[in-house]
Design a binder for these strands. Sequence first.
DNA 1: TATTAGCACTCAATTAAAGAGAGTGCTAAC
DNA 2: GTTAGCACTCTCTTTAATTGAGTGCTAATA
Lengths: 348, 348
Amino acid sequence: MKMDSRKQQILMAIIHDYIATAEPVGSRTIARKYSLGISPATIRNEMADLEETGYIEQPHTSAGRIPSERGYRYYVDYLMQREELTNDEQELVRQRYEAKVKGVGEIIQYTGQLLAQLTNCAAVVLSTQTGNTAFRHIQLVQMTTEKALLIVVMDNSTVHHRMIEISESITQGDLDTISTVLNAKLQGRTMESIKMTLLKEIYFELAKHDQILNMALELVSDSLAPDIKDKIYLGGVFNILNQPEFHNVEKVKTLLSLLEQEKLVSNIMSDGCRVSGVTVRIGGEISHDQMRECSMVMATYTVDGRPQGSVGVLGPTRMDYARMVTVVDYMTKNLSLALERFLRGCGK
Amino acid sequence: MKMDSRKQQILMAIIHDYIATAEPVGSRTIARKYSLGISPATIRNEMADLEETGYIEQPHTSAGRIPSERGYRYYVDYLMQREELTNDEQELVRQRYEAKVKGVGEIIQYTGQLLAQLTNCAAVVLSTQTGNTAFRHIQLVQMTTEKALLIVVMDNSTVHHRMIEISESITQGDLDTISTVLNAKLQGRTMESIKMTLLKEIYFELAKHDQILNMALELVSDSLAPDIKDKIYLGGVFNILNQPEFHNVEKVKTLLSLLEQEKLVSNIMSDGCRVSGVTVRIGGEISHDQMRECSMVMATYTVDGRPQGSVGVLGPTRMDYARMVTVVDYMTKNLSLALERFLRGCGK
DNA sequence: TATTAGCACTCAATTAAAGAGAGTGCTAAC
DNA sequence: GTTAGCACTCTCTTTAATTGAGTGCTAATA
């Protein structure tokens, strides 16, 4: 079956109307609201064809049609046209990003909030921690006789810290020595590039302080590695409560409990996200049963061309894809810019 | 009206049954389930009295009775008896707190999760940042020619960091100097104790590095202060979806949007929380319209006797107060202990 | 041949009515 | 003071009837 222009128009009408009203769309409605210059009867014939091809479906015999996942897919791939954000909206975004921030986390958080606000969907921002960020600074601060705080600053200005146990005989002076050695050896190197060789090197360097040796090694291998994992920011999750498809509390529950499993969300996003451009995953395309009735629109943000993570929105399959794609694209670019500006610190 | 023992027993029966079933309780039910040795008719008479006094109320003429807020209050104040946690539950808590953690944040997060899990309510943990924690270590790390990362470690092992702008001519060496001076002057002092005198002192000390002077001052007054604000951890918020009173999506929405306003939650908790013991706020006692139908049970946790914040659970007015109080109390104590152990690092 | 009007048919959603059930308050007996 | 009995109230459930939106098919029309 070939999709002539009229079929396309009807499919679009159905999708637009369904997105707007959340009600199945009948032939009469289309004839009335969308002036295609044809009668309901003709539309019915076309709709029968569209249904046969699987682009639309009928909840029950005497109801109108709703788009199928395949219909949405066709719409997203061939029919929909991007809109622009209004000036007000652009202004809103601009102002938010202009605020002084104290760290990358804040910028990401703002992004999530804006996304949620602009789309009325749940927003997810995934900050991927690739092993390819270099160490900038390492510092050990003694807290008690048996504990010290290990602070690691990465090149992307993220700060990680964790408490580690030390033997009682270690003084802040010793810790400073270790810090110095670690700094000298690790500065500018990435997590990935730290191989056994390097650890050995440190091993010998610290051999003089033999008793603190074990600790230092454990520190690098144990403490740093697991610390660096993907981070997830959620925004406006309860926005989905505004969608009629989530007036059923059960559905909300399954979705929310799913969103709480960070690992899962992380997988879905990093799996499904192409490096460039906006990716749309419709219903079952997200291979996860509990998300059957959801779609995601997402994109990867970068700093100087290197992917840093992804941003996305999560909503019912019946979402305004055109707008979502526009917003996600816009926010991705803005986030990338904001991050670059923040990390670089170039005047403007 | 005096509450004789039988009236009390009936009130308790009503409350217990209503908590368990969420249905209005009739005289017949009480006679059947709770063997008080009196007939439904007698119970009806007593209930009429209880209603007149305002301890219970009737949704409509031919329904059973439900406890009023006043009834709950009486129950909480005079009738309810604490239960113990089961061994399994205690074990669960113990294991969670035994896990190695890398910071205070994690301990607090665990607490929230456990609370939510044990109570099936939304859990809130508020970490108050009093100005009375002392500085432990301050470090400036240059990131770009125009930006440096200010890292502050407090005595309670929390780490704050923020990016600050620096003039181009400043080197890491200068930053180290500033760090050293700041450390010498601020170490061991609390935010509160830093008065203008101290700032002046630093001013003179740094006079030699005159150009970086402004920055250093701005840093202490601007950067540090606003950084230190209360932090809120939410856990298992979607637990409230399990409660029949929240099967109405509208109610969920108002409550959730309220929980998103951190400031508000922070106020409610710090206002309502006595320093010692468990505080119960029933329905309208939380002076906040959107929380009319909720109750909170909360307590303050401490480190070495000094209040550090509060933990609480939020659920429908029809909650199992006895259990909530038990759990909140138990968790508060465990949190306090876990924090002390973590900060001190004493062997066991 | 493509379009359209007309019509019978289907099925969810709404409305109305009937009944069941839980619970009360009152009265009178114990 | 307690309790059995009974009439009464009001919600909730069930059932039936009605409405209405929408379709598919057929035959007429351009």
